[in-house]
Design a protein around this nucleic acid. Structure first.
Lengths: 252, 252
DNA sequence: CATTGTGAACACTTTCACAGCT
DNA sequence: AGCTGTGAAAGTGTTCACAATG
């Protein structure tokens, strides 16, 4: 979420829908697996199944990249891998810093799928002196004090924040000031950044809450929380809830 | 993103848009912070800013829940906290199992925002004998062998998968067979589940790739990868042998 | 009169269905 | 004959702008 782009790129054809971009990595992963099994070509149907989407969507997605398939045959696996990698910018090297070397930061540092695509962990940073100097995932942990130097020297443009919510905005500000323009935020807080900086958020607690919502629906197929209302009335006047016998007012 | 619901719930007015559901936890978090500061009421504008959305969207979202605000005044913080919690199903207790106690599993087990809302870690499971018996986040790690028993005895309906991709589908199948109907999957693989089971996916590598895409755009504002093509032409490559080309579909 | 609640307009995404190529 | 590529339709989500209202 939270992609800063508010204005149309306007650069004519160069418009790959955001929803498509979000699926390209999925296709790429499925294609890589096929490639490793030396499968030469794949149909939209097969690839879609492997990626967990439907074939119409996949074809539409690919149509934004160009005409890379062969009618009657399918897609050349190697060729597609290359095209998607290029489109995603994975043919170049992306140095990344991870700020916060707790369990989550360590998990990321150890994560293989990281380095395998163009990402390279340039540094692990933590402000805890007990950690700095230690080695995590074969890499020395630097002190957060060196953030600016490390970002600058390594030309880091992507930062990953894996510290508690409290310090996240400050670290974010420092990353941005040092030149980082893309941030992957695991801290459960809203980061504010200047125009032109992208923030993506991964929030474990939110994911669970969304699951709980659906889970609740399943459980109470009929006992849908008995119209229940207010343990505390709103302010002074009783309010109307959406439930009870209120006739559906949903617009078309 | 993968929510199994393919058919409209159809149950009359009960239709909260998925996009709205995904934002409710955000509002809830902002409201909880206000509540802790004993702020009694908040306007859509203020709350929207705190949650990182715009006020029109927030009001529209809330309108699906009911009319919980007061014109000219705003929303009663406590009341909204309760209503959203109830809507999300957080007024009840959700026992959760975490399968895989590596760094990521440990990070989740230690994550506070977990227990604070209705979620309770019923068990940590791992198949590594070196881990079972150990204590992580103040909780004993059980062996994966006991998965079925633990899920059944605790009435667990939500499972979190934090093991490598290889074993994920198998664990998923066992969870589902034991009665779990919602799964949060951190393994970089597509899980197939029966109708009625929800899967949400958190994929670190995908998030980074999406950032890289946008990052690339920024960098090459004009040098937009010069139409560049083929290190391998599209289909000079001879395709599959006419014999038995394997239709590459991941085993279920 | 500040602020909510919401139709209506707009934008984006998915799905359909089939023409067009190989 | 088989499969891609894509307009057009349908569905979902966002924003606008203002009437309703405490």
């Amino acid at each position: 979420m939270a992609t800063g782009r508010t204005h149309r790129p306007a650069t004519r054809s160069r418009g790959i829908p955001e929803a498509t971009v979000a699926r390209l990595p999925l296709y790429l992963r499925a294609l890589t697996a096929l490639s490793e099994r030396s499968v030469p070509t794949v149909s939209s149907e097969e690839l879609a199944t492997a990626a967990g989407v439907n074939s119409a969507k996949l074809r539409k997605d690919f149509s934004y990249l160009g005409s890379y398939g062969t009618r009657g045959v399918g897609y050349d696996v190697e060729y597609l891998v290359y095209q998607i990698s290029r489109e995603l910018g994975l043919t170049q090297d992306w140095p990344v810093v991870i700020v916060g070397v707790g369990n989550l930061g360590a998990a990321l540092a150890n994560y293989g799928g990281f380095a395998s695509r163009g990402f390279r962990v340039a540094a692990l940073l933590d402000q805890d002196p007990a950690l700095t100097g230690r080695t995590v995932a074969g890499m020395a942990v630097s002190h957060t004090d060196d953030l600016e130097r490390i970002v600058t020297e390594n030309g880091v443009s992507i930062g990953v924040i894996t510290i508690p919510a409290g310090g996240a905005q400050q670290v974010c500000d420092r990353l941005v000031a040092a030149g980082v323009t893309s941030i992957l935020n695991f801290a459960p807080t809203v980061l504010s950044v200047p125009e032109g900086v992208d923030v993506r958020k991964v929030d474990l607690s939110i994911e669970l809450q969304i699951l709980a919502f659906h889970e609740q629906r399943k459980a109470g197929e009929d006992a849908v929380t008995p119209a229940a209302d207010l343990p505390v009335p709103p302010h002074t006047t009783p309010r109307k809830g959406p439930d009870g016998d209120v006739p559906a007012v949903m617009p078309a």
